[in-house]
Nucleic acid binder design. Structure first.
Lengths: 120, 120
DNA sequence: CGCACATCTTCACAGACGTGCAGATGTACA
DNA sequence: TGTACATCTGCACGTCTGTGAAGATGTGCG
């Protein structure tokens, strides 16, 4: 049970934290975004697109060595969320990144918390 | 079905991507880290600790308005992963951030992809 | 010791998630 | 039109995950 809502151990700090903490709705949005990257296949898709600009589904499936069905499922989530965009060239559909925040997140994690200096 | 592994549409780009893409193991690690933040409660815990430095479990439960059991469960995951550390003061246990990458990730997402300018 | 308080843990379960399969859609070309 | 190819979608299933309930652990105090 949450404590009585009446007995914070450090009331000032609690008030301070309450004022600055990510709000419920924002946290939900942030978590939803991060959930997209919290899967190895999707993270690697973002990584691959970040590396070479754009790739079609079949080539992506070759790069990652996973089934095209899996790639397609993953791309659908990313596309719906606005993380990637696509263009069609004949029967081939090329995907590219549409949200610079995603590769940035991967870099921050990979580099261990240093968020300064961009793509090296 | 995956293509034949023999018919990339852009072989050069595939080779290029293969060389630069996040490897399977690394992707697994990155995804595991991000999964920790891909939950509203844990994201808010990181946010709160980032805001005020340290908080005990009970106060955290007040700040977030969730049960202390939920906070404790969440903290265990974060602690096991090295995201937070704690110190004991009597019966009260204070938690603080131990991995600067996590709040950095939250900021990158919140700011929409601008990864420059670090913490503070 | 016994009691109160803060935190942790075990168990159980509903809900979300990732993936393969099979078929559908859409495009190109003859 | 029919075939071949690239991609997408719906369904089903095993697995993972977050949470609450209830009790356990650990600490301080008298």
């Amino acid at each position: 049970m949450p404590l009585d809502h009446e007995h914070p151990i450090d009331a000032a700090r609690v008030a301070d934290a309450r004022a600055q903490v990510l709000e419920r709705d924002d946290a939900e949005r942030v978590a939803a975004m991060l959930r997209l990257l919290a899967d190895p296949v999707r993270a690697r898709i973002v990584s691959a697109l970040h590396a070479v600009g754009e790739l079609c589904v079949g080539d992506l499936s070759l790069v990652l060595d996973v089934s095209d069905s899996t790639v397609s499922h993953a791309l659908r989530l990313l596309r719906t969320a606005g993380v990637v965009a696509n263009r069609r060239d004949g029967r081939v559909i090329y995907y590219r990144l549409a949200d610079p925040a995603m590769p940035a997140v991967l870099e921050v994690i990979a580099r261990g918390g240093d968020a300064s200096a961009g793509s090296g």
